[in-house]
């Protein structure tokens, strides 16, 4: 009996480790593969067989994509919307969350309800578009920032966090004559650092990753294009790009200057993914904190 149990345990462990190893491989392989292709000479890539190590190492693909000035510009717009959007969103979310966390606040219930309803009801694609057009935001940079200024879910996460802080701190500050804004800035915010980090990261990631607002509201303005949007265009134009690749790759001129759409696509993919990958290891713990606070309280 005991021996059978032990044997089963070992088999079960092996099974689990195999599943986990499989998970690791299928998660990481695409990243490494795309990286390898982006670092491999583009004509050579078309022979196939590149896995995780480039066969003919080159940085030409990256040089090539940054030759197009619009991609450099798109990169800047992506950075700009991420920085400005994150700052404004985080500050707004925290202020609102603090006001709505105060039990004696006169509109606490009403405002909370008004915000929570928006989690379930929305105008939809076209009414939203029309509304932004009436507001004169179509084709403007602020269309990236203002419509998504506050995410109700993030606001609830911050509020739950504030609710869990001991209220006595705020009370004693009040007795000392501090006003509500001072309490918010000097007492509550410093204690909220972990949750602020969580929300700021949520917002930053979604700002960086967003392409749909560019597609819907700013596609006629090349100067507002973002990195993700450029990648989306390359991705959905693959069939058109394949026509372009029918240029004879064997002519000497082509061999020198030709960069295949595949290599371009992979290089842009890496450039668009790198900021996330850089931030990720340092800050992934905050995401988990945010997620568990949100799920416990909801």
């Amino acid at each position: 009996m005991r021996i059978r149990e032990k044997a089963f345990d070992v088999v079960f462990d092996i099974f689990i480790y195999l599943v986990m190893a499989f998970t690791l491989v299928i998660t990481l392989y695409p990243f490494l593969n795309v990286l390898a292709i982006s670092l491999n000479e583009s004509v050579d890539t078309m022979r196939g067989g590149i896995h995780i190590i480039p066969r003919k190492f080159t940085l030409d693909n990256y040089r090539e994509i940054f030759k197009y000035s619009n991609l450099t510009h798109a990169f800047l717009i992506s950075v700009l919307r991420t920085v400005i959007g994150t700052l404004l969103s985080t500050v707004s979310t925290c202020m609102l969350a603090y006001a709505l966390s105060r039990k004696e606040f006169i509109y606490r219930k009403f405002f909370t309800l008004v915000f929570v309803i928006t989690m379930y009801v929305s105008g939809g694609l076209i009414p939203d578009y029309m509304n932004l057009r009436h507001l004169g935001l179509i084709g403007k940079f602020w269309v990236y920032i203002l419509p998504g200024l506050i995410n109700t879910y993030n606001m609830i996460i911050v509020r739950s966090f504030i609710d869990n802080l001991p209220y006595s701190l705020q009370e004693s500050a009040k007795i000392d004559g501090a006003n509500d804004f001072a309490i918010f800035r000097k007492i509550v915010m410093p204690l909220c650092k972990p949750v602020i980090a969580t929300v700021a990261l949520f917002v930053a990631v979604s700002q960086w990753n967003s392409w749909m607002d560019t597609y819907l509201y700013a596609s006629s303005k090349p100067e507002l294009s973002t990195l993700q949007y450029e990648l989306m265009k390359v991705l959905t134009n693959t069939s058109a790009a394949q026509d372009a690749s029918r240029i004879d790759p064997n002519s000497p001129l082509a061999r020198r200057s030709f960069v295949s759409p595949q290599s371009i696509r992979m290089a842009i993919t890496i450039v668009a993914a790198v900021p996330i990958l850089v931030v990720y290891p340092f800050l992934q713990k905050y995401f988990v904190i945010g997620l568990t606070i949100g799920s416990v309280k909801e």
């Binding site: 990648l231 989306m232 991705l235 696509r265 990720y280």
Partner: peptide, 13 residues
């Protein structure tokens, strides 16, 4: 944490 654009690009590849 990567965008669907990047994910789709990788998956297509």
């Amino acid at each position: 944490f990567i965008s669907w654009v990047i994910a789709a690009s990788m998956i297509t590849q």
